[in-house]
Design a protein around this nucleic acid. Structure first.
Length: 270
DNA sequence: AAGCGCACCAACCGCACAATG
DNA sequence: CCATTGTGCGGTTGGTGCGCT
């Protein structure tokens, strides 16, 4: 396709981020918001013809003056911000509840780390992916469960709690209506993984991102609600025709900046 | 104390897709 | 409609720290 590289590799730093680079990125995003990652280093960095010459204003962090110049690829900036610098990140060890939720969600969604991360506030897809590969995989293996199929390791046909494929199931064990807002009907047995996903609320809540106005298109209702700063929220349960079902609980949602998405169990398996 | 192997995790890479002109 | 651009995602890699021998 011959697409241009995402950045001028000759003029960008790679590897671990320094404290100073972190502060530069934070200060830039605080001033300009998220988005336009590709142009961020250009906007925040020193002139290419004089890469060592800093002509940018300094920002005071306590007693430290920090230049706003940033020699990083835009993708690298985005990753650093999303995975490490975002103020709403939780950091720290995963709880047992988070463990179980990740396992259940992985059984339903597969390696859709961003979707799984969307159900775990303060956690990033990268963090969950790493945690899965280093901890949970081993945990499942020790239980005799195949981490990929969520079925028994010895080749048994029954998956532990993976959603059945649409073509294989005439009547899914739990419909979207059943799964959403279902917190007390399964008996809550953690040992029975097959029942385990019945208590899983798959209503995906999507917070309105802080996007640059450039990518916002007010003409499209769904897109504009998801990308603009409009306080108007759209219930996707209603949008998809679930408004009369138990799955739709948009009337109970406190946060007006929330979109609700119902993912049907039979669609969750990819 | 030194060397080695392993585990963890931050960061990179390439691809896919949506947006844009 | 097509080419290009920008962003997001998932897989993978490499550096670092820690425990064991």
């Amino acid at each position: 396709m011959g697409r241009s590289p995402c950045c001028e590799k000759a003029h960008t730093n790679k590897g671990a981020w320094t404290k100073e680079e972190d502060l530069k990125l934070i200060s830039y995003i605080k001033a300009h918001g998220e988005g336009c990652w590709r142009s961020l280093p250009k906007a925040a960095g020193p002139p290419l013809e004089h890469p060592n010459l800093c002509c940018h204003p300094a920002i005071a962090y306590g007693s430290v003056l920090v230049c706003t110049g940033l020699l990083r690829c835009g993708k690298s900036c985005r990753l650093r911000w999303i995975n490490y610098l975002r103020p709403d990140l939780k950091r720290g060890n995963f709880t047992e509840e988070e463990d179980e939720l990740i396992i259940k969600l992985h059984g339903l969604l597969g390696n859709k780390w961003s979707l799984i991360a969307g159900r775990l506030p303060g956690r990033t897809d990268n963090e969950i992916k790493n945690y899965w590969n280093t901890h949970i995989k081993r945990k499942l293996l020790s239980r005799g469960i195949d981490p990929q199929t969520h079925g028994p390791i010895n080749g048994g046909a029954t998956a532990a709690f993976a959603a059945p494929h649409p073509s294989e199931t005439a009547a899914p064990k739990a419909s979207a209506t059943d799964s959403c807002d279902e917190t007390n009907s399964s008996g809550g047995s953690q040992d029975d993984d097959r029942d385990g996903y019945l208590d899983l609320n798959l209503a995906l809540s999507i917070s309105l991102p802080h996007r640059s106005p450039k990518r916002s298109q007010p003409s499209e209702p769904l897109t504009s609600a998801a990308t603009s700063s409009s306080p108007q929220a759209i219930c996707l349960c209603c949008h998809l025709g679930f408004q009369s079902s138990e799955a739709c609980s948009c009337h109970t949602t406190q946060n007006p900046h929330v979109l609700r998405v119902i993912r049907r169990l039979e669609e969750a398996q990819h």
